[in-house]
Design a protein around this nucleic acid. Structure first.
Lengths: 211, 211
DNA sequence: CAATAATTAAACTTACAGTTTAATTATATA
DNA sequence: TATATAATTAAACTGTAAGTTTAATTATTG
């Protein structure tokens, strides 16, 4: 008798996720069917459901991967730079890069990060996603605290609400700039990045010491 | 011979939209089918498609109606109050009220306002929605300009990018607070409104003169 | 009452998520 | 190398929802 081995489960999952990623990037998540993914990955639809619970699980893994990259962006902002302003600029650029690379996931992450994940029964990837969200929060916290210590950021900041509101302000203008790039160009003659640089300066102004 | 009159088209449209509104509020837009709407409105599904192109048109009208209310909120903020701070507080409260009353539309409006609507062929309600978006922008502009004149807001604000970035920051923190109300409560012991008040003070700080 | 406008039920199409079944293909090992 | 078994598959199926078609019914008014 003989059992079959060939490739481990993880390889098939990777093949499928990778094909799905390319299709999601090109056509969006909703416009990509499980049949499309199966065809592109070179499996039958039946096999897809051997390796994944459902479409949501595939999306969840891609969201997780994208979150890891965002976490890396932010980590390197803090490692590579010393001054508060340089760190801030790098974080902002990382967020813009993230939005541009993963527009569909950016939106989802805005909704998903930091929901209470103790109470409900989430998939392991979802829990991991939330944990990375927590790590990002922790890094933003360290950035704000060190800026306050250095005297660059207002010493009266209430750190906990400041973290999330900081994130909310930045993600708000980035999402808006992405949605309305055309309008911004037409109505004020600004490129998306010029517009955002102005927005980033406003946000910095909200947390920085005067002068 | 005889033609039938009974009720004008607008009455039927109103009946249908009104039934749809109640269902959307209760169960959300995606979870409400056209059959559900037909049943609740007391028409057959066939008749729904006599009075409306598709589900999107019904949603579009409700988004428009909700936008009108938001415009009213903001208008009355500017009429009822004189000082920059009082106006600001009232605008913020209006936005929160709007998000809470129409959570599904708030999200859509964030995406829809101010896209270039000259180029594509939109439905009349969509065009009207965009025009109300423009009116809201105009009011925010007046608010910012009068605040600058009074010396309450920074005189170096670049008005055009400031308007949209202001809107982006506020909508960003409001959407975030709505998504993560539970998390905010658990992790920092703050009510949504207390958290948002802190965020609003940050945003105000970004545009206000020092002092 | 007759002509016609409004409305309807019901069956239909299309698309997609997800499932079931029975058959096929590959492979380790005796 | 034969074969038990693991992996994979095609194809048909269910369920749901948007939107369409058709033929019949109901209401109105002259």
């Amino acid at each position: 008798m003989g059992r079959r081995k060939k490739e481990p489960r993880s390889v098939h999952r990777e093949n499928i996720v990778s094909a799905a990623s390319a299709l999601f990037m090109k056509r969006g998540i909703a416009a990509t069917s499980m049949d499309d993914i199966a065809k592109a990955a070179g499996y039958s639809k039946t096999t897809l459901y051997v390796y994944f619970e459902n479409k949501e699980e595939i999306v969840g893994i891609l969201v997780l991967n994208s979150m890891k990259k965002l976490d890396d962006y932010i980590s390197s902002a803090l490692i590579q730079h010393e001054t508060t302003k340089a760190r801030y600029d790098f974080i902002c650029r990382g967020l813009v890069q993230y939005q541009e690379e993963f527009p569909f996931y950016f939106k989802m992450v805005l909704d998903k990060i930091n929901i209470d994940f103790e109470s409900k029964n989430y998939l392991p990837e979802e829990k991991e996603t939330y944990q990375i969200g927590e790590e990002i929060n922790e890094k933003i916290k360290n950035f704000l605290l060190s800026g306050m210590e250095k005297g660059d950021l207002r010493s009266d900041l209430e750190i906990m609400p400041a973290i999330l509101n900081f994130w909310g302000m930045l993600s708000g203008i980035i999402q808006l700039a992405a949605n309305k790039e055309e309008y911004i160009k037409k109505s004020m003659g600004l490129s998306k990045i010029k517009f955002l640089e102005y927005g980033f300066s406003l946000v910095y102004h909200s947390i920085a010491t005067k002068g």
